Simulated assay, not measured.
Amino acid sequence: MRRALLFIPVVLTVILGIVLFQRIGKDPTQLESAQIGKPVPAFELADLLDPSIRHGSEALRGKGPFLLNVWGTWCPSCRDEHPDLIRLAEQQGVRIVGLNYKDERPLALQWLERLGNPYALSLFDPDGKLGFDLGVYGAPETFVIDGDGIIRYRHVGVVNQKVWSETLQPLMQQLGGQG
């Protein structure tokens, strides 16, 4: 019996090694998403800029493909990607909907005032409910949504020029959007 107990750490180490080996070479920005091919989950959230305005999931339909960018002022990577989002919105006409995630409204408003606002629409998700329904792990995450409100792609991490030109822009063009 004691001898059998000695093999437990060996077995656990082998199992852990197999799991880690399977992840080698995988791109962490390419996380699986059960939401791909499904509509954006139903929601009703306040507008970040004007809390008296409420938006539902129908606000995300019928306006051609767009990016849904999940961000927060607490997220250093969101700050890194912000100039690229400004460039996409202002110079290339890309429609971006912002989902301010698990944040405080005054801080988010200060952020947009100071750094600029690339968002055609800003949703405020202080409890992270829509983020949870989307399967968000953290921020930044960016979803490509088609004109019918269907999630077509999910990018985890910073949207920069390389991600835009190699991944998001071709997909947006394929869906008939700007870029």
Rank of each mutant, 00 (worst) to 15 (best):
W74C: 09
P76L: 11
P76K: 07
P76C: 11
S77V: 08
D80W: 11
D80Q: 14
E81G: 12
P83W: 05
D84W: 14
D84A: 12
L85P: 04
L85Y: 10
I86P: 09
I86L: 13
R87D: 14
R87A: 13
A89I: 01
Q92S: 11
G93L: 05
G93A: 06
V94Y: 04
R95K: 07
R95M: 08
R95Y: 03
G98D: 08
L99I: 02
N100G: 06
D103A: 13
D103Q: 10
E104S: 10
E104P: 02
P106Y: 14
L109Y: 09
L109C: 08
Q110H: 14
Q110G: 13
L112P: 08
L112K: 06
E113P: 06
E113V: 08
R114K: 14
R114P: 03
R114G: 08
R114I: 10
G116I: 11
N117E: 08
N117V: 00
P118H: 10
P118L: 07
P118M: 07
P118I: 00
A120P: 00
L121P: 06
L121S: 08
D125F: 04
P126Q: 00
P126V: 00
D127T: 06
G128W: 02
G128Q: 01
G128D: 03
K129M: 06
K129W: 05
K129H: 10
F132Y: 10
L134I: 00
G135T: 06
G135Y: 10
V136M: 04
Y137M: 12
G138L: 10
A139Y: 15
A139N: 15
P140D: 09
E141M: 04
T142P: 12
T142C: 10
T142E: 13
F143T: 01
V144W: 04
V144L: 07
I145N: 03
I145E: 03
I145K: 01
I145C: 07
D146Y: 03
G147Y: 08
G147D: 08
G147Q: 05
D148F: 04
D148K: 07
G149L: 02
G149D: 02
I151G: 05
R152V: 04
R152Q: 09
R152L: 00
R152W: 04
Y153T: 02
R154K: 13
R154F: 03
H155M: 01
V156E: 14
V156G: 14
G157D: 05
G157C: 03
G157A: 03
G157Y: 06
V158Q: 14
V158L: 11
V159E: 09
V159W: 09
N160I: 02
Q161P: 12
Q161S: 13
Q161D: 15
V163F: 11
W164E: 15
W164R: 08
W164S: 13
W164L: 10
S165G: 11
S165P: 00
E166Q: 15
E166C: 12
T167D: 15
